[in-house]
Design a protein around this nucleic acid. Structure first.
Lengths: 114, 114
DNA sequence: ATCTCATTTCGATTTTTCTAAAAATGAGAT
DNA sequence: ATCTCATTTTTAGAAAAATCGAAATGAGAT
């Protein structure tokens, strides 16, 4: 992942509505959710939601698909995973553990198996 | 982690210089780097760098410590890890795998062991 | 006590982002 | 072919963030 696209992805997530929206889709799974359903769940006007969805989409974090009258959005899990991998890449200067979480250990495993 | 602090952390990372800076510190490990060294490595004026460092610091992503004449910055790994955990929390609607990366699997493990 | 140097704060400007009403689009239903 | 409804685009204004030179701070060194 290049730095530029990581910044675009992080900018897409760095906003209250969009972060809530993305997490909603992440937790919704492959089935996704219709734009209208999301707007209602988040209490955001449709035009505002569309603006935010477009940003997540152009960052590559969510995918779009028409289904009957609605447009279904779902999380792009591979994109999410590579953003996370980019953030923690080569962490801790090669130390075994960053001190707390699983994320850095996962990065260690990635590195060893790659 | 609350939504608000996740947005603050993501905003802190959603900027070219700050993302580069954070990754520099993540990879530098517990030893950290002096502000001046960072400024030179990134080619950013000292005053601009200080502005960006302050944001990463107020987001809790980096820690500060004086050492002789310099001020040393280092990554806050636990903060990094909990941000990542928040992003991928309960992903895939309980499915075994999100399709690609290790991050979601790590989240699965977390959930099972918690 | 003073000097020096690394870093931060101030200030003014420019750029970017958020918001949401109103108009436009476009796919399916009648 | 037209109607309807979900969603997007446009638009304009308001709010927030980035930039960086110059001045201020503050801890060590002399």
């Amino acid at each position: 992942m290049r730095s530029e696209s990581a910044v675009i992805s992080l900018s897409a997530l760095a906003q209250e509505h969009r972060l809530g929206l993305f997490r909603l889709l992440v937790q919704a799974g492959e089935g996704g959710l219709a734009a209208g359903v999301i707007a209602e769940k988040l209490g955001v006007p449709a035009s505002s939601l569309s603006f935010h969805l477009a940003q997540l989409r152009s960052a590559g974090l969510v995918l779009q698909e028409r289904q009957h009258r609605s447009i279904i959005y779902r999380a792009n899990y591979p994109a999410m995973n590579s953003l996370v991998a980019y953030l923690i890449e080569n962490c801790c200067a090669g130390a075994a553990d960053c001190g707390a979480g699983a994320a850095c250990e996962a990065s260690e495993q990635e590195r060893k198996s790659a």
